[in-house]
């Protein structure tokens, strides 16, 4: 069943400041196609660094990451082609402020997938419809609320028709009343069978949507299992301690 595995991480390490700060100290992990993996852990534990290594926004210091059969840590891999297949959603949305929503969504498909303007816009409008923002197509990012921006950021990534979606604390910069609308879009995406890796502090989302939860601390996966295992019956003292604090 190896074909089922889309991302395979072996011995992943990431050091900052010439090795003084070891953010990741050996991560091994397989992610199956269609799986929703939620990564939880205290801040500074390395969970965001782990996620950013998956599309090489951080260059790993050691270890291998194989995506869809290709070793992306090999310097000869075309990293741009690889990133086309992995959508990423950031904590601070990172929409392009000088472009309309529609332009934000169609830029990459037109340049990289060689789609015609009409095709790219049709795809973008269909996705906007799904997240209920079709009427904002010609607005600029600064005219939107945080929740709307993040929903746009998600569909902007989806315009590239990625195989995997990475979420880096997608609701952490939002006002509380806007968290729900973003999580709803992510739930819908999970139900559609998208492979997702989500770093979040939303334990409710992890419990409800995740197929598997990874608890990360000090750059290592301390414990992993189904949401039921992790939340109802954590085995490791550090997991128990963390969950006691956040739940």
């Amino acid at each position: 069943m190896t074909t089922d595995i889309i991302i395979s991480v072996r011995g992943l390490e990431k050091h900052f400041d010439e090795g003084k700060l070891k953010a990741l100290q050996g991560i091994d992990c397989d992610i199956k196609r269609g799986e929703v993996v939620v990564v939880i852990g205290p801040s500074g534990s390395g969970k965001s660094t782990f996620l950013r290594c998956l599309n090489l926004l951080e260059q790993p210091s050691a270890g291998t990451i194989t995506v869809d059969g290709a070793d992306i840590t090999d310097p000869r891999t075309n990293i741009n082609k690889h990133r086309e297949k992995m959508g990423m959603v950031f904590q601070h949305f990172n929409l392009f402020p000088h472009m309309t929503i529609l332009k934000n969504m169609t830029l990459a498909p037109m340049k990289l997938l060689k789609k015609s303007k009409a095709d790219a816009e049709a795809k973008a409008m269909a996705l906007l419809q799904r997240v209920g923002l079709a009427d904002r197509a010609n607005a600029y990012p600064s005219q939107l609320s945080g929740g709307q921006k993040q929903r746009i950021a998600i569909v902007r990534a989806l315009c590239m028709e990625p195989q995997v979606m990475l979420f880096d604390e997608p609701t952490s910069a939002l006002d509380p009343e806007m968290v729900g609308e973003v999580l709803d879009v992510m739930k819908q995406l999970a139900e559609d069978g998208m492979t997702m890796v989500v770093v979040t502090h939303e334990m409710g989302f992890a419990r409800e949507v995740a197929d598997r939860v990874l608890f990360v601390d000090e750059g290592r996966i301390i414990e992993e299992g189904t949401p039921a295992q992790i939340f109802e019956n954590p085995q490791q003292p550090r997991t128990q301690d963390f969950l006691r604090k956040v739940l």
């Binding site: 599309n55 959508g87 929409l95």
Partner: peptide
């Protein structure tokens, strides 16, 4: 902002 570069690169733009 650095996030702008990261957003562009994460979409696959060179």
């Amino acid at each position: 902002e650095k996030g702008q570069t990261e957003a562009g690169r994460s979409l696959g733009l060179s």
